[in-house]
């Protein structure tokens, strides 16, 4: 067994605990801080799997930008620091959603449906994925899928601006 295995298990336990913290914390601010801890732990796990670039991307994008945004919104909300009551309907929906996801992923893993695709082979083939390897794959064999991911993002941005514009018009009238 790999010597890193116990550490990996330890990190996974922390990951699970922080994930539970996000869901179960009474104050929204604590949820946001748990989410930060969760994302940092995920980065640590990537590092242990010698995926340095993915770990740093996780750190820069999720910990450094997205969770800051969440925290910002939570802090600005008047009820950000107050305790929110439990919402049973939401909890049930979350359990069903997470359960379905878990079953589907386990099934796919057991069936061997999820694995390195042929297009991603250059990354997996390299022992440690360096920035150079990832760049080569992204701008070589994976170029079209990579560029296509920008499309949903563009749609999201346009959608956000449109929603905001509609609200702006209402408030002006």
């Amino acid at each position: 067994m790999d010597a890193r295995f116990p550490y990996l298990v330890f990190a996974c336990v922390i990951l699970l605990l922080t994930a539970l913290g996000v869901v179960l914390a009474k104050k929204p601010v604590y949820s946001a801080v748990s989410l930060l801890a969760n994302s940092l732990t995920l980065a640590v796990i990537y590092l242990m799997l010698s995926a340095e670039f993915v770990a740093i991307s996780q750190l820069i994008i999720y910990s450094g930008a997205i969770v800051v945004l969440f925290l910002f919104v939570v802090l600005l909300l008047p009820q950000g620091g107050s305790e929110s009551g439990h919402n049973r309907g939401r909890a049930v929906a979350a359990v069903i959603g997470a359960g379905t996801m878990f079953t589907a992923l386990t099934y796919a893993l057991l069936r061997g449906a999820v694995g390195p695709s042929s297009a991603a082979a250059p990354i997996v083939a390299a022992k440690a994925s360096t920035v150079l390897d990832i760049g080569r794959s992204l701008f070589g064999p994976l170029l079209i899928p990579f560029e296509l991911t920008t499309l949903p993002m563009l749609i999201a941005i346009i959608g956000a601006v449109t929603l905001w514009r509609r609200q702006e018009k209402v408030s002006r009238e």
Partner: peptide, 25 residues
């Protein structure tokens, strides 16, 4: 001496903002 030194610096220094936001709030 990481291969991703510059990116590491960007990532870690971006955590500093939490100290300001959380401390202030």
């Amino acid at each position: 001496d990481l291969d991703i030194g510059v990116l590491y610096l960007l990532g870690v220094s971006s955590l500093g903002v939490y100290a300001l936001v959380l401390g202030g709030w």
